[in-house]
Nucleic acid binder design. Structure first.
Ligand SMILES: [Mn+2]
Ligand SMILES: [Mn+2]
Ligand SMILES: [Mn+2]
Ligand SMILES: [Mn+2]
Lengths: 233, 233
DNA sequence: AATTACTTTTAGATAAGGCTAAAAATATAT
DNA sequence: ATATATTTTTAGCCTTATCTAAAAGTAATT
């Protein structure tokens, strides 16, 4: 089945990181997007649902492999190699999500779990061909940007729906929370990426919003408004 | 990332077997197709390029999980649950191979290694949708049959090219050896699935064949002729 | 500054999956 | 029937990735 004898080089480079190591790298990558300080052991543990002691062990290993710098008690930071590696996993994850939605009729709340597995498949050709097959998409089904081959990530201009003022109009371009509960709620309300949303009113008392979508009026809580990204019109 | 808390049931059923267990099951499945006796420890070890002692350990575990029956020193046999499980992995492997060739422009000698990874992705919906997306293919790129959802495998009528007599004509329907070396050799000679092949002459001395493909005459060794499946015309 | 609380690391254990070397069982040859 | 060869199993060790409990370090509070 697997042919270890030939393709030694391809085998080696494509197996630089285990699935577990890749999941840690990705977690650190995501945490660094929202924090400039060193990423704490506990933060990582929470993100990947493991124990702090396991994180300490893994972080030492990643440090040996030169993908993070680690100072005891001071948290970790990705090296540029680490950033590139992590971005590549995110790239794969998001391309697979696009595939699942565009080609296999998954809904946007069903793709994450499967992509979590598919992101670990080792084959540069596979991901390049997939990218081409999907016509080089720039965003995943949740509106998140897809890193390019070099790991560069072009973030689009976006604001939270909660920041819109009365009578302003925005286009939905992404979600902050991509749990299936939230996504299914959005489906139910008819809110998808690309949907135009107008703020009819804002309630000072609880920060809820009255919005208009497709000529229908709808009231949404502050929590919803703080998890929806829009582009101002 | 992975959400173990919700979907406990889906999590459990889709994680019944580890990647390693699945590879063993598949190896035994393939070995049983060419042997009616219990599959020996050594045969499995050779197939998955591991040591006999590792096989003994794994076989005990598979026996505990009721997918094989194991009698010390007597080899193993798949139970019906084991057969179904293995067939499902083969189904996934071959569907992914079709996907890679049909949609991502892989050549037939490049798909196996990647399919070896993709076959372990756990998602019933994924494989059902993929099947539909590919238009319910019945053979993989090497001409091997794709088991159905129940694990039933419809083998087509086929014979080795070596069994054809002088002046008989066959259609190439599969390969016995699917190593990339052999497949690339076939590419070079212009032999693909569906190709018509006429036997012009057989050489008694070394059992080599003189064949005609696309109006061109070609001499092939007995080894080649014993690794090409054809359907007699 | 001292105490308390929280975070992080260490130490030690476990389970999966692999290995080597030796022992035991089976098969083959004399 | 015995001796030899081969196959298979067992015993013991290793690595990876987890965990719990305890120790050590850092931060917050009085
Ligand atoms: Mn996702
Ligand atoms: Mn993952
Ligand atoms: Mn294959
Ligand atoms: Mn495999």
């Amino acid at each position: 089945m697997i042919n270890k004898k030939n393709n030694i080089f391809a085998y080696l480079i494509s197996n630089m990181f285990t699935q577990s190591e890749e999941n840690y790298l990705k977690a650190i990558y995501h945490l660094e997007l929202v924090s400039t300080k060193g990423i704490s052991t506990n933060a990582i543990a929470k993100k990947i649902e493991t124990k702090a002691s396991s994180v300490t062990d893994m972080v030492k290993k990643l440090s040996d492999k030169k993908v993070v710098v680690y100072k005891k008690y001071k948290g970790v930071k990705l090296t540029s190699l680490g950033k590139k590696t992590a971005a590549n996993i995110v790239r794969k994850h998001r391309l697979w999500e696009v595939f699942l939605v565009e080609k296999l009729n998954f809904s946007w709340d069903e793709v994450h779990e499967v992509a979590e597995q598919l992101e670990h498949i080792k084959s540069p050709k596979l991901i390049n061909q997939l990218d081409a097959f999907l016509d080089f998409p720039k965003q995943d089904p949740h509106g998140d940007p897809i890193p390019d081959k070099e790991g560069n990530l072009k973030t689009i201009e976006k604001s939270l729906l909660a920041t819109l003022h009365k009578n302003e109009i925005g286009i939905c371009v992404g979600v902050n929370d991509s749990s299936s509960e939230f996504l299914q709620f959005l489906d139910k309300q008819g809110i998808t990426i690309g949907q135009e949303i107008k703020v009819l009113d804002k309630e000072d008392f609880d920060n809820s919003l009255s919005i208009e979508i497709d000529q229908k009026e709808l009231s949404i809580s502050s929590k919803i408004a703080n998890n929806l990204y829009i582009q101002k019109k």
